[in-house]
């Protein structure tokens, strides 16, 4: 793949890929980095480079997760220490335009089924088309669309359910 194309893909996708890879491992940056290195070494350009990157990042992240599980105790301690800042770790803004907290979105994502979470992250922040999403999830575009709509609906319900007390609290004028 040409270096310029690679840089362009890296600039546009790496952030979303980190978010995507964190589903499986605690060092998602490494998974993304490795996926880009693999793409750079590809002899022929993939048909859907974005979908290819997502697939490869998933595989890399899963491999890293396997290695991480060998020293799980240490990681669990780290997670506990850093748990409070998890949302800040991945997003710049603390809230969405409609004042949904980033941490609630993250919690909502974590509560989804793995394949649903994968699809939402890849579609929303990775901006994959349904064609590319189908490639990533190994299904037809129509099926990818249906599954995505279902996943997004579930996420919306969970996030809104979690953020409602806050909204109610704000509306009631309590500190």
């Amino acid at each position: 793949m040409h270096s310029d194309n690679l840089q362009e893909l890296f600039a546009s996708l790496s952030n979303a890929l980190v978010l995507y890879a964190r589903q499986w491992c605690r060092t998602p940056e490494d998974a993304v980095q490795e996926a880009f290195i693999d793409l750079a070494n590809c002899s022929s350009e993939p048909t859907y480079p974005k979908a290819w990157l997502y697939t490869t990042t998933r595989r890399k992240a899963q491999n890293i997760a396997r290695a991480e599980s060998r020293h799980r105790n240490h990681l669990e301690q780290l997670i506990q220490e850093r748990g409070a800042d998890r949302a800040d770790e991945y997003w710049l803004e603390p809230k969405t335009r409609n004042q949904i907290a980033a941490s609630e979105v993250l919690e909502g994502l974590d509560s989804l089924k793995p394949d649903q979470r994968e699809m939402v992250i890849a579609k929303v922040w990775g901006e994959l088309t349904f064609e590319e999403l189908a490639e990533l999830m190994n299904c037809s575009p129509a099926s990818a669309y249906r599954r995505y709509v279902l996943a997004l609906t579930e996420l919306k319900q969970r996030v809104l359910a979690a953020s409602t007390p806050c909204v109610n609290k704000r509306n009631s004028g309590l500190p």
């Binding site: 890296f10 790496s14 952030n15 979303a16 890929l17 980190v18 978010l19 940056e29 993304v32 770790e89 991945y90 997003w91 710049l92 803004e93 969405t96 335009r97 409609n98 949904i100 980033a102 979105v105 939402v120 929303v124 922040w125 996420l155």
Partner: peptide, 11 residues
């Protein structure tokens, strides 16, 4: 669109 307003952090 609301979710998209959460910009992922720079790699």
């Amino acid at each position: 669109q609301d979710l998209k307003s959460l910009t992922p952090k720079r790699f």
